[in-house]
Amino acid sequence: MKVLVPVKRVIDYNVKVRVKADGSGVDLANVKMSMNPFDEIAVEEAIRLKEAGKADEVVAVSIGVKQAQETLRTALAMGADRAILVVAADDVHQDIEPLAVAKILAKVVEEEQPGIVLCGKQAIDNDMNATGQMLSALLGWSQATFASEVDIDGDSAVVTREVDGGLQTIKVSTPTIITVDLRLNEPRYASLPNIMKAKKKPLDEKTAADYGVDVTPRLEVVKTAEPAERAAGIIVGSVDELVAKLKEAGAV
């Protein structure tokens, strides 16, 4: 079985994000970029499936600017077998919307015929949480989102989902889309020899036009703003004072 893992190049989670002065978005010029952490968990899970003999090939795919090939090299260094880069933008500030990404992925799935698409539940840049679900709808495949445990058994997968108020376990039949949550695994560090080997692994380059998908944005960003600054808290001396303060603030 082949596993397809879509990965997104996003602003590194350590970077202090700055909004552009004109409010049109986040400033990405000369900013450190990395693989979306949820996608890294998906890559790790796919490699573990391969190591456990439950998958025979792991293919990473990224859709975006040309520089996303660095992100794919990271996936290859971690252990993916080959990679597909779909160039769909030439400006790092142009985010490809989930529907366009899902449409391109649907075409990639048609070509590659994976048994499972393992992806991050969302990207940390825009937090859309939509691509996996849209892909499932476009393909007519089952979906298991927010996975914290994945157990593949023949042509079905038992997936534990992190839902509001607890855990839900479902069984889906393959082919299926699984979107992964934070607690599924701890991704490995790519070793230096594997980083060097990754350079020799195949990386195919395509464009959105090759798949006949129009990536023109359907959404208009009206405004991007920094989160409002929170006022400093206070330390109360007693429960009575706490209740008084809460009443004062109209909270109880």
Binding site: N14, K16, E70, R73, T74, A77, L192, I195
Partner: peptide
């Protein structure tokens, strides 16, 4: 963490090595 440092043109291999070592360390 201070991430706004200048980007030296050291090549993809070295950048990948730095990323990996940085994260691990």
């Amino acid at each position: 963490m201070f991430t706004a440092s200048m980007n030296f043109d050291l090549g993809d291999d070295i950048n990948a090595l730095r990323d990996m070592t940085h994260r691990w360390a």
